[in-house]
Amino acid sequence: MKLLFLYASTNGHTRTISQHLATYINAQQPTWQITQQPIETAHTITPSEFDGIILGASIRYGKHHRAVSAFIDQHQHTLTQRLFAFYSVNLTARKPEKNTPQTNPYIQKFYQSLPIKPTLDAVFAGRLAYPEYAWYNKLMICLIMKLTHGPTNLSTIKVFTNWQAVEHFAQRLIAQLTQRYSWRSGKVVQGGEPSP
């Protein structure tokens, strides 16, 4: 099994989540081959060589990185033939009522612009680190936090990510990939039909 993890990370936390997912899966399935790299270098790989493609993207000023939708547009045929998973990382997901793909406004808006939808998806709360931001970004994010009742102290560094949720997503990935591989290999899988 070959997996490709691509991430669009602004300040590094989406990369950290990608690494956590890959490490967890590798511990459960040590024979699986995992490749990780930033979305900006996606032109150096051939997605069709992988059994699963897991794409993660952070939100900056209400939008996912443009390279993410460009990658999906360019490789939509391949993505429909593989397990395609997507997760969004944003601070809005720190709120329980906005921490699922169905209730998170950013991911719902993003899906409206895509030609295809992922097989699996998730939303994870990100990391707030005012001291690491440029002054303009710091003020803008502080304003957003004030409007959404988040931390506004400019010395705040806080990770809102629910790591159990990240590992649950990894478990779902393993289950889906194992099921798909078993059906394609002609093995009997307990519990239902092959994944679409």
Rank of each mutant, 00 (worst) to 15 (best):
I107M: 06
E49F: 02
P38Y: 04
A134Q: 14
P194G: 07
E193N: 08
Q171I: 12
F160H: 12
V189M: 01
W32F: 04
Q81D: 11
A27H: 08
M145P: 04
F71K: 03
G52H: 04
L4Q: 03
K158H: 15
I25S: 00
A42S: 15
V188F: 07
A129C: 10
E97R: 13
H149K: 15
A122C: 08
L91I: 15
A129G: 08
L55F: 03
G186M: 06
I54A: 01
P194L: 05
P118S: 10
H20V: 10
R94F: 09
E193M: 08
D51Y: 02
Y87R: 10
W135V: 15
Q74P: 06
L139Q: 13
H77D: 13
Q164L: 13
Q76S: 12
R66T: 15
I107F: 02
G56S: 11
P105K: 14
T100V: 09
T10C: 08
H13K: 08
Q19Y: 00
T78C: 02
Y7I: 07
R15T: 04
V189T: 11
F110M: 11
P131K: 09
T31Y: 00
T16F: 04
E167H: 12
L4H: 01
T156Q: 09
I116T: 08
T14Q: 07
R172N: 14
L6A: 01
T178G: 00
W32V: 00
W32M: 01
